[in-house]
Write a protein that binds this DNA or RNA. Structure first.
Lengths: 155, 155
DNA sequence: GGAAGTTTACTCGGATAGGTCATGTCCGAGTTGCATTGG
DNA sequence: CCAATGCAACTCGGACATGACCTATCCGAGTAAACTTCC
């Protein structure tokens, strides 16, 4: 199991945008700010737009900004925008295959194993949902957002 | 993020072995029981042996059995035997890269984002650790283990 | 000076390629129980 | 009848092929602001 590296990009880009309220920041700016491949980062930002986390505007002075207030964007929103919302464990019902296959009458309820994996995934999601972007930047010393604002605003 | 399909094999094979206490079951038997590729399944069972979940014996009438009582094998043990114990989110410290790189003095503590992802992973692990193989087979109607015993014991 | 047309800067989407890892197969080495053989 | 030897079944480990997905790059289409031009 592995989360895409681009998830880290998405999380940091979103928190960076949260530190520049009102402003609109382009892909190239964000790519330079974190030293990331511009074209591929663009794809990930598009995923965030598609998920309703960011909103993108075209044209000159265009770019991205948060689509919602920071307190209404959870870390889970970002994670599932990039990686998808599916359960990493996929039950293929092998209990119904092979020599030991159970009859369908015994399989009306969900397999105990799948239920266990589902519960764990829900615990993971709940933990991520309890953290918002506002929480993420709330702990930072005031000097950081100030510096980010200076570096990302185009005057 | 995706867990290997072979994890389902490992979970079902372990619970199957738990239903046949004392007996030793070969890879070929398990593969036939669930209709799985024998050679590749062998690799996964080897991982479970390496993790101390199963113990394998060579020679005729050899095969696998549980290395510990069912109540002392957690689902987490099996999952991490197959998939590894690492956090799926890997922090690469991009906050220290690019134009917006933070000075090392600001990065002595772990990044808030990484901490959040760590906590979620721990919640996931805790959930899986709270479930043992004994719990998994405890809920089954008595007819199932009986059937499994009949199918997997070689008389 | 103002309106229309042109240029520029940027996002969006698709096409494509390489790398990594899970999946799957095959084969040889080593080990152990069983059968056979010889005393 | 017993011990020693050979055979068979099985696990273990490595080598190798395939496919899916993440990473990465490039290019064209579309859009909106800014700039230029012309009346």
């Amino acid at each position: 199991m592995k989360l895409p590296e681009s998830l880290e990009w998405a999380l940091h880009c979103t928190t960076a945008l949260a530190q520049v309220p009102g402003e609109t920041v382009s892909t190239a700016q964000l790519a330079e700010h974190f030293d990331l491949p511009t074209a591929y980062l663009s794809k990930q930002l598009a995923l965030l737009v598609r998920a309703g986390v960011l909103s993108g505007t075209t044209g000159p002075r265009g770019g991205f900004r948060l689509a919602r207030p920071t307190s209404e964007i959870t870390v889970l929103d970002i994670v599932e925008a990039i990686d998808g919302a599916g359960n990493p464990y996929l039950c293929r019902e092998i209990r119904q295959q092979g020599r030991g296959a159970l009859p369908a009458s015994q399989c009306r309820e969900r397999c105990t194993i799948a239920t266990t994996m589902d519960r764990a995934h829900q615990a993971w999601r709940d933990s991520l949902r309890s953290m918002t972007v506002a929480d993420l930047i709330g702990d930072l010393p005031a000097s950081i957002p100030e510096r980010t604002r200076r570096l990302l605003s185009r005057g």
